[in-house]
Amino acid sequence: MSAWRRLCADLEKESLLLLRDRRALLVAFLVPVLTIWVYGFVEPPAEARFDAELFRTTDPTSLVVSLAVMFPALMLASGAVVRERGQGTLDRLLVTPMHPAGFLAAKLAVLAALAFLQTLLVLFVALTTLDNITVQDPVGTIGRLNLVALAFLSLGLLVSTVSRNESQALLVVTLLVLVMLVLSGFLAPLDGLGPLEPVARMLPYTHAYLGTYHHLKGLDAPDPYWALLALDTVLAFGAAALLLRRTSRTA
């Protein structure tokens, strides 16, 4: 019961902070909308699967849609803990009976709610703006894109917990995005990456991109990517909670 009260208080706090941070909200909705909208003007004709011999995993539409979900999620979450550290509120909370996992769970829940709205918007804009996207199962697509958001929110929270200040978090996020993008399988086939292939196959964005690609192309059946993405979410969140717990003990 007491943990529930604390979680409710945390949820209220996170919701209020998010709703009052108009600029962050604006960015959260603006970035994906503009990304897809602008991409709509330069969208090339899709070549995937038109011809039996032309099957390949390079699909800019899947890349843009998954990026539009992933990037804002990562950016928003990467500032969540480190901002509290910077303004001193984390220290204030650490001297209360707060629980690190509950603290992070509240952040994740509120950001996930935002990500849900973001995903709806992304899908709507993508469907109205892009030519090479078809959604046969809207609920499934929204669910899957939300899993992408959840995974990168968790990763962002981990980055935020590890970082000492916001600029450090931003640098880490930038580096992560670049590396994950290069190794996602979009720029080069995974099986052509040589020794980097096992690394690439473990990266969350690889799972997100290939999962989105397979889903949007109706190839879901033998698809392990969503399970892997769920595992990424659990691992990243668990690591963030453990690190924060350690911080609270040694502060």
């Binding site: 208080a9 209220e12 902070l17 303004q87 209360t96």
Partner: peptide, 19 residues
């Protein structure tokens, strides 16, 4: 060490919630 976007009343309520 307060949440700047929130009012004093809300800050007190949120920190109090931790107890």
């Amino acid at each position: 060490a307060l949440y700047d976007p929130l009012s004093p009343r809300e800050n007190l309520r949120l920190f109090g919630g931790q107890f």
